[in-house]
């Protein structure tokens, strides 16, 4: 871990829809390179919106505030340009893309992000390594992207993408939801490998402490009604798991 800032969100306010419903309200967040930050909060607090906003989802309008990545203002950049800069979002509900195999999709994606043609031999090596890290059956990559995958397989496939694309910053939006105990452990292994092998930085949106067991958490942020109402260390995660969000939501 270094003190170098990789992501800085300043006074961010976002709305959604034609009626401009406010979601995020004056959010400030600073993430250092190599750190692991946890975002917790009750349903509807704006956690996924935060992930989507950092990843440039046009469905969310930025009304004010700025997002800096490695010191560069990326507030107005499209999602693909943010991906090229090294940001990755693991979706809570990964999308199905019929007609293209996961293998072919990942290779094309890696080429888009790196801007280089990747040799099959080189790519296959990367892919095999990633598959083994999360004990994923190699036959999955020859199936169409997320098509016919169970909920758990889709989440594992997102982590597979993380391990192949190796971004500088990964935002994981409830990657652990809907997973059984074994699958949480596997996904957790993959996330740890991303951090340790590739020096990754993590923002993890979660309700589940189990996924955090294998990770050293640097900061926990509590998001309520679009605002970060408290920031603490790993112990804050434990406290919330014990006591819930009542003290933040009451009144």
């Amino acid at each position: 871990m270094t003190n170098e800032i990789i992501l800085e969100i300043k006074d961010l306010c976002t709305t959604v829809g034609e009626e401009k419903t406010p979601i995020l309200r004056n959010v400030d967040l600073t993430v250092g390179r190599g750190e692991t930050h946890i975002i917790m909060g009750p349903n509807g607090a704006g956690k996924s919106t935060l992930g989507f906003t950092v990843m440039g989802n046009p469905a969310y309008e930025i009304e004010s505030g700025k997002i800096f990545f490695e010191g560069e203002d990326i507030t107005d950049l499209s999602a693909d340009k943010r991906a090229v800069k090294g940001i990755f979002l693991s979706f809570q509900n990964p999308i199905e893309v019929p007609g293209i195999s996961m293998r072919s999709f990942l290779k094309s994606s890696l080429q888009q992000i790196t801007g280089k043609r990747i040799k099959y031999s080189e790519f296959n090596k990367t892919l095999e390594e990633a598959l083994s890290l999360i004990n994923m059956d190699p036959s999955y990559v020859d199936r169409d992207v997320n098509v016919g995958f169970s909920g758990g397989e889709k989440k594992k496939a997102e982590i597979l993408q993380l391990l192949v694309l190796r971004p500088k910053l990964a935002i994981l939006d409830e990657t652990d939801s809907g997973l059984d105990v074994d699958a949480v452990r596997t996904v957790s292994q993959g996330i740890r490998a991303y951090k340790e092998r590739y020096g990754g930085t993590l923002i993890i949106i979660t309700h589940n402490a189990a996924i955090l067991e294998a990770l050293d958490v640097d900061k926990t942020h509590v998001l309520v009604k679009g605002k970060i109402v408290e920031t603490g260390g790993a112990d804050l995660t434990d406290e919330i798991n014990r006591n819930g969000f009542e003290k933040y939501t009451d009144g």
Binding site: D80, G99, Q112
Partner: peptide, 23 residues
């Protein structure tokens, strides 16, 4: 949007979806 988060610009994303349809 999903494809754009994986590095494809909008035009390339549309092209990929259509190509995949014919695959």
């Amino acid at each position: 949007y999903y494809l754009m988060t994986r590095g494809f610009d909008e035009e390339a994303a549309v092209r990929l979806i259509i190509r995949s349809k014919f695959n």
